[in-house]
Design a protein around this nucleic acid. Structure first.
Length: 332
DNA sequence: TAGGCCATCTGGTCCT
DNA sequence: AGGACCAGATGGCCTA
């Protein structure tokens, strides 16, 4: 770990007694070279350092708390590292490592719980930690805006809000969970899509000016933009469909009560960079085809139809395929 | 093979 | 003194 002057200035006399600059830098030169969870490693290093600093010291218990002048730094005092003291450090370090592991496991458990309540969850495609946090942040923010606006949220804007700042794979996953084509709500992607698709889908949605892209730095999200949400000037061809969809969901689909339904793998299905429109359509169709038991197999949260964050499954029959969507748009 | 993600170790700091 | 929390460093694993 690089040690700055500021860090050095923070050191207390006590810390200097147990570890000077050279010790710190030396430790990091050799730290974690094996990575095999050998708890003795750090203490072996400590002992090596101590060997350098305790020349001729035999480690009697009675000398444990005595102080001596450091031979390497004038004016600094450090405690003798006796065998007993080394042993105490070793035990303390082992215990600290275990606590740290448990702490991180608890953190990971909490993160896993969070993964299960954000809008899309897949057992096969686990969101990374950072993406989980980003999606959760977007989700909370979107929900709060919906509450404040007191209006029926439009799905496209809702998904846009969810996907702010998310990586391409995560955006694909969210899109897959909501059975949307990410081309239709990500402006930067829309620049690269084939013209045919662009004309038939993306151009139909006027991206809301209050959803700038790329997203602002995290934590600085402007909370005003949904208040400014203007009604769509261009009819969203999906909107009536989704209104029906979610209405149907509440009436025909069982509410989420038990274990998660089988996940729908959307891995790569929305990747557009190396696929023609036809290929895209095929992969999209495949993603639907492999959805188990006629259900989407994913669990989606829509704040307007799933109050209190209740999860529900969206029947596959309620979804319009990408081809169907394109046909409708072409015929419109 | 590079890059992303992750688990783990570690030392420093703050608090009880 | 010891625990909680944090951030840096490192190596392993996986994927494009």
């Amino acid at each position: 770990m690089p040690v700055s002057q500021q860090d050095v200035s923070k050191w207390t006399e006590e810390s200097r007694n147990t570890q000077n600059m050279e010790t710190v830098n030396g430790a990091h030169k050799t730290m974690s070279m094996d990575g095999d969870n050998d708890d003795d490693d750090g203490f072996n290093r400590m002992e090596e350092n101590n060997d350098d600093e305790e020349q001729g010291e035999e480690g009697g218990l009675g000398e444990e708390e005595s102080l001596e002048e450091s031979p390497k730094r004038s004016g600094t005092k450090r405690k003798k590292m006796t065998k007993a003291r080394q042993q105490r450090f070793k035990v303390r370090r082992i215990k600290a490592n275990e606590r740290e592991r448990n702490r991180m496991h608890g953190l990971n458990d909490a993160l896993e719980s969070l993964r299960k309540v954000v809008p899309c969850y897949s057992n096969t495609q686990k969101l990374s930690k950072i993406e989980t946090l980003r999606l959760a942040k977007n989700y909370i923010w979107a929900l709060s805006e919906i509450l404040q606006s007191d209006e029926s949220p439009e799905l496209m804007l809702f998904v846009q809000a969810l996907c702010q700042g998310l990586s391409q794979p995560t955006t694909n996953l969210v899109a897959g969970c909501l059975q949307l084509n990410p081309w239709t709500f990500l402006p930067e992607q829309a620049q690269d899509i084939p013209s045919q698709v662009h004309q038939t889908s993306t151009a139909s949605f006027s991206l809301h000016p209050s959803y700038p892209y790329p997203s602002p730095p995290y934590g600085t999200m402007d909370s005003s933009h949904i208040h400014h949400a203007k009604p769509h000037t261009v009819d969203n061809a999906l909107e009536p469909f989704f209104e029906t969809t979610f209405t149907d969901c509440t009436s025909t689909s069982p509410r989420f009560e038990g274990p998660l339904s089988p996940p729908l793998s959307v891995n790569g299905n929305f990747s557009y960079k190396h696929k023609s429109t036809t290929e895209f359509d095929k992969s999209y169709a495949l993603s639907i085809q492999y959805a188990p038991q006629g259900l989407a197999g994913v669990q989606c949260l829509h704040p307007f139809y799933a109050s209190s964050s209740q999860r529900f499954d969206i029947p596959m029959d309620n979804f319009m395929s990408y081809e169907t969507h394109n046909e409708r748009m072409l015929n419109a």
